[in-house]
């Protein structure tokens, strides 16, 4: 626990450093909020253009997107900079991280903590009740619980995906944008009803990577409707379990990766 003070210091120094370039910081905050709005606006544009798509109206689709986006945004805020691991490995700066007497994972999280990433989270949290009331959701205790569990599970799941894809750099130094397929691609996947995807693609992402549980299945519980594809209702409660399982896999990958790390030497 003595380490906690150190991490907090790293957080504080990061925040102070970023506040030095004021114009850039503000553009960044505005950009982050706008990004949240525009991400979700793609859902609105497509569903407005199509009317009812794959059995879902615009409001229902927005609810799916809002739940999934909250999970993604929390993970992005906390461990989103795991996709910079590849830069550290490539430039050899990972050595410095490993030499310091603090856990590597914690350092990486604290080293590039970006409060401005909160914009997307703010947008999604605001949108959730709006989309729900538009879709005519009748809030009961069970439905509130379903949303909360979905958000916790979704954050764990996306956090695991960020970490897991970050570790790819330990094996594959020049992996470039490879991880984006699963982090940002995963976010895009989970903002739509899974019924729109072709069956092979859907199975890989919705079940293989668990992304159907980030927004779609919990949203069905909240909307009180059955899955047009025939999945049972209780799927909506599985999100935390899926998130934990994903974290377990990511932790294993991370440990193996760190142990396997060889400096690039430059």
């Amino acid at each position: 626990m003595a380490d906690l003070g150190l991490y907090l210091r790293l957080f504080a120094s990061q925040t102070r450093a970023q506040a030095q370039y004021r114009t850039s910081l503000w553009l960044d905050v505005v950009g982050s909020v706008l990004m949240g709005v525009l991400d979700l606006s793609a859902v609105v544009v497509l569903f407005r253009a199509g009317g009812v798509v794959a059995g879902f109206a615009t409001a229902e689709a927005l609810l799916i997107a809002a739940i999934a986006t909250i999970g993604f945004a929390v993970a992005d805020l906390l461990v989103g900079n795991m996709d910079t691991v590849r830069n550290l490995v490539r430039t050899g700066r990972m050595d410095a991280v490993l030499l310091r007497p603090l856990g590597a994972f914690g350092q990486l999280v604290a080293m590039d903590f970006q409060p401005r990433r909160a914009g997307r989270l703010v947008v999604a949290v605001t949108l959730l009740p709006i989309a729900a009331s538009w879709a005519g959701v009748d809030w009961t205790g069970t439905r509130v619980a379903a949303v909360l569990l979905a958000v916790v599970g979704g954050s764990l799941l996306f956090g695991a995906i960020f970490t897991g894809t970050g570790t790819v750099a330990f094996w594959w130094i020049d992996s470039g944008e490879f991880g984006n397929s699963f982090t940002y691609g995963g976010r895009d996947f989970s903002t739509f009803p899974v019924g729109i995807y072709g069956s092979v693609f859907r199975r890989i992402f919705a079940y293989g990577f668990g992304l159907g549980f980030a927004g779609y299945y919990p949203a069905l519980l909240v909307l009180g409707r059955a899955d047009p594809l025939g999945a049972p209702d209780w799927f909506g409660w599985l999100t935390p379990a899926v998130g934990l399982l994903a974290c377990l896999v990511a932790a294993l990958l991370w440990r193996t990766g760190i142990r396997r790390y060889r400096s690039t030497g430059s």
């Binding site: 497509l46 569903f47 253009a49 199509g50 009317g51 009812v52 798509v53 794959a54 397929s181 699963f182 691609g185 895009d188 996947f189 739509f192 019924g195 729109i196 995807y197 072709g198 693609f201």
Partner: peptide, 18 residues
């Protein structure tokens, strides 16, 4: 390619709806 699949399925679903 991953994003191609994502966007393509989404747009084709919209086209199906219309």
């Amino acid at each position: 390619i991953t994003f191609g699949f994502l966007r393509c399925y989404a747009l084709l679903a919209v086209a199906t709806a219309t």
